[in-house]
Design a binder for these strands. Structure first.
Lengths: 157, 157
DNA sequence: AAAAAAAATATCGTGTGCGATGTAATCATG
DNA sequence: CATGATTACATCGCACACGATATTTTTTTT
């Protein structure tokens, strides 16, 4: 009886920590979409662009470290962006295993066209600046902590 | 020159609010995985189970409202869970359009087997209770606010 | 009551995510 | 310097997410 009552609370959605993040993340991606589809890019593609607007030339692995994504996600993503003429690929001469990616002129030009996106999104969020700062701070703390513990491709089991 | 400097900050990942949530959400899903694969379920399937452990019988739409998912995601998800014998489907007699879903005995039995999952996950997060509570509170506030403004299938443009 | 609109699912196509595995290049070690 | 381990990507298969659209049933309008 009492055990039944306690069991009932364990799996309540509002008690969960991941679910509201999972749902919120998808909701925000939906908010991004009308802004990004005018630029003919998806949200993950926008993330790749944001990285490359600040870092000229990166290997696939380095890009993956910035975005917490593995090559099995990035390779097809990069391929599509190359087909859209947003990105150039170039194999490293010093290490033939590595592939560098960098933006084309078209990819660079998108930065200007996307300059209104961050503010437009913040408006659509309808969240207080305080809450936004709090989320950002805690999530980055979590991510850095996570990055120390688990190194992508390996995983220490 | 100064315009160049300000432009540079706009699209920095650490300035973004959605990216750390998007990345954190995926990281947490990865933490769930070793716990859930022992039960032979995925994270979205776990979410469906959590709802149905507390609400006996729901239509696809009602389930979608709980999880912020549309039928184009839920229908195939439900189908797979039916094939795994976790869920039963039944068309409503009062409204032939609606389909009710409810757990099979096997689905109900999983609640017991999953009872350690929430605590195990919290441990693996390595976050303070205070941060967890803060995230949960702000994210739910955001979700409820969002739910008021945007009604899934329609969208008020 | 017939026609139009709305509602509840289902289907289709596209784009991620990611575990598992494959391949080629580089490194490490005896 | 051969060879086994490691590294950097690529490929494959599966499971979501979701916009667009189709289908069936109910509701609303006229």
């Amino acid at each position: 009886m009492k055990e039944e009552a306690s069991k009932k609370r364990i799996h309540l959605l509002p008690e969960q920590i991941c679910f509201p993040m999972y749902a919120s993340s998808r909701m925000i991606t939906r908010l991004y979409q009308p802004l990004l589809e005018k630029l003919d890019i998806t949200y993950p593609q926008y993330l790749v662009l944001m990285v490359l607007w600040h870092e000229e030339k990166l290997s696939i692995t380095e890009l993956g470290q910035r975005l917490f994504l593995n090559t099995n996600t990035l390779t097809p993503l990069i391929k599509k962006m190359k087909e859209k003429n947003l990105i150039k690929k170039q194999r490293s001469r010093s290490d033939e295993r590595s592939v560098f990616v960098q933006l084309t002129e078209k990819g660079k030009a998108l930065e200007e066209q996307a300059s209104h996106v961050p503010d437009a999104l913040l408006d659509s969020l309808k969240m207080s600046n305080e809450d936004i700062d709090t989320i950002r701070r805690i999530m980055w703390k979590f991510l850095s902590n996570f990055n120390e513990r688990v190194q992508f491709t390996e995983g220490e089991a």
